[in-house]
């Protein structure tokens, strides 16, 4: 049984004039990180809202852990961090986790144990008594992440989880997400930060104007460019240029070394042998791949 099933989910506003999401079908397997990509207005947040019962689908159906999305029980094992969260400023961090934990049906006994752990995990344990109106955006985002984990969910929906968080905070959130994945949780992410998505996602779906245009494993999106970056000791660059000429390899010399169009690993090995025969020190060899950003821009164009 997949963690999340979407079968032809569609949403039209208002009275069918605007297509927010059209016939979206996808299965998200348990224990994976699935990322939704797309420009603004692509339908990513709409999909989240349909799956979480925040909006009602015009067509199609969805299931979470086998339970139909119209049934509140489907959200029993779900955690959610929304994009534009508006947390009550009159509560402090600890109270916020308590009240929203109660809404998830968690007992006082469990909350007493989980709240300090979660506050520590998101590094807000020393600010637990501060009113939320005094929290920075990054702190609210981290608290929102803790809130999404308060019921020890099986599936976590995160809408722009690293939005407003500094680079160190992002690394911390990424580590939390990878930990969760390793403990068997399913994570469904909607993010604009393609580099973050590329690092952590198992599967990716790309939406454009409400329509699913690509889905697959993250590695499928990171295509090889057919080029290698070869870096040698700088004083021997002339000799290496000669070797490329001898093999009729098109190459460009960059700050990071030679970017050479090498068709296959066999050819690469022949070139390496030749370079080593000349006793030239190879400092680094890297296969050049398209980044997710390159792929994303290409697909959307």
């Amino acid at each position: 049984m997949p963690a999340i099933e979407s079968i032809g989910l569609s949403k039209y506003y208002p009275r069918g004039k605007v297509q927010a999401l059209s016939d979206f079908s996808v299965n998200v397997e348990k224990g994976t990180i699935f990322s939704l990509l797309g420009p603004n207005g692509a339908g990513k947040t709409t999909l989240f809202r349909l799956l979480l019962g925040i909006a009602v689908p015009t067509k199609g159906e969805g299931r979470i852990l086998g339970t139909h999305i119209s049934d509140p029980k489907a959200r029993q094992k779900v955690g959610y961090l929304s994009e534009d969260h508006r947390f009550p400023g009159y509560l402090n961090g600890e109270q916020f986790l308590y009240y929203y934990g109660k809404m998830s049906g968690i007992s006082d006994h469990d909350l007493k144990r989980r709240i300090p752990d979660l506050l520590k995990k998101v590094k807000l344990d020393e600010r637990k008594n501060l009113k939320l109106r005094k929290y920075s955006k990054g702190m609210l985002q981290r608290l929102g992440t803790a809130q999404a984990l308060i019921n020890d969910p099986e599936i976590i929906f995160l809408d722009e989880p690293t939005d407003g968080i500094d680079p160190i905070g992002r690394i911390e959130i990424r580590e939390i997400l990878l930990d969760l994945k390793n403990s068997g949780k399913t994570i469904f992410i909607n993010s604009h930060l393609l580099s973050e998505v590329e690092r952590i996602s198992d599967d990716i779906a790309i939406l454009k104007q409400g329509v699913l245009i690509r889905k697959g494993k993250t590695s499928d999106f990171l295509e090889s460019t057919g080029r290698y970056q070869i870096c040698v000791e700088k004083s021997k660059n002339g000799q290496v240029s000669e070797i490329f000429r001898k093999f009729s390899i098109e190459n460009i010399q960059t700050a990071g070394g030679f970017s050479a169009a090498i068709s296959c690993p066999e050819k690469l090995n022949e070139i390496i042998d030749e370079i080593r025969k000349e006793r030239i020190l190879i400092e680094n060899i890297e296969q050049l791949k398209n980044s997710l950003e390159d792929y994303f821009i290409k697909v959307l164009k």
Partner: peptide
Amino acid sequence: KGNIDLILSKPL
């Protein structure tokens, strides 16, 4: 927005 989303995402 941002408040009702969170409440509706609870099993209520």
